[in-house]
């Protein structure tokens, strides 16, 4: 079995100090392997989103370590983490977080362009990603001109553009109806089946069930886990 794409080791995160101290995470360890989709479930305030922001390098743990693709995020520094987000990690938000001033294709091409890719090649890659999420005709539309499901598909295209190894999705179906949500999960699942590692934060069992493993988080701790062990999943996916 190869190394995990994402590895969180004993990660804690404390917001604020003194009386206002909030323990978002208390020593969480987690691994996500290539080809695997891990769902994180838990009620509001359980720390599941903190876990994701830390995994994406948007926030730093108070203690513990995070490695993505074998690279330690703490050692990578701010610019290193930014580089990682441009190239290896795709992030999908509940409220899409598309830039309204940019067209669909430009939003998708954003990480590549930020990484210094040429406009032409970034745009071609964006087209491929848009095709993958079934929005090939929408390249020049602005986010405002699209439905919620279309917008989230754009966001997913942005998260997968340029062969990302890790996809982090924070309640990506939160603002969508069940059927549209299922479509979004299908896209994420397909990407994982194609070899990426995925971490999905959700509070809905129906979406969590798309994952190979479901991890329950409560009060900043992993309390339970359902699903096959990663090794069997890995074997199944590789063979199937």
């Amino acid at each position: 079995m190869s190394d995990p794409v994402l590895r969180l080791t004993d990660v804690s995160r404390v917001h604020g100090t003194g009386a206002a101290e909030v323990h978002a995470l208390r020593g969480v360890s987690l691994e996500a392997y290539a080809g695997e989709l891990v769902a994180i479930m838990g009620p509001s305030g359980s720390g599941k989103s903190s876990l994701l922001t830390i995994a994406g390098g948007l926030d730093s743990p108070t203690s513990g370590s995070v490695t993505v693709d074998g690279q330690d995020l703490g050692e990578a520094g701010i610019s290193g983490r930014a580089k990682l987000r441009r190239t290896s990690v795709g992030y999908v938000f509940q409220d899409f977080n598309l830039i309204p001033a940019l067209t669909a294709a430009e939003n998708v091409a954003l990480p590549l362009e930020l990484d210094g890719a040429g406009r032409r090649s970034a745009r071609d890659a964006a087209r491929v990603a848009l095709e993958e999420v079934g929005l090939d005709g929408f390249a020049d539309r602005f986010p405002d001109e699209m439905s919620g499901g279309q917008r989230q598909r754009i966001a997913i295209a942005r998260a997968i553009v340029g062969e990302r190894r890790l996809i982090l999705a924070d309640e990506p179906t939160g603002a969508l109806d069940t059927e549209t949500g299922e479509d979004i999960l299908k896209l994420i699942r397909a990407r994982c089946d194609a070899g990426a590692a995925g971490v999905l934060v959700t509070h809905e069992p129906r979406y969590a069930s798309w994952a190979d493993r479901v991890i329950y988080v409560r009060d900043g701790l992993v309390v339970d886990e359902a699903g096959e062990t990663p090794s069997t999943v890995f074997a199944v996916e590789v063979e199937g």
Partner: peptide, 20 residues
């Protein structure tokens, strides 16, 4: 509760596999 939930989640995952 947890045992039951894990079992049901596995059933759910089973349905997913069937669907896929």
């Amino acid at each position: 509760v947890q045992q039951q939930r894990n079992a049901t989640m596995q059933a759910l995952q089973g349905y997913r596999r069937q669907a896929r």
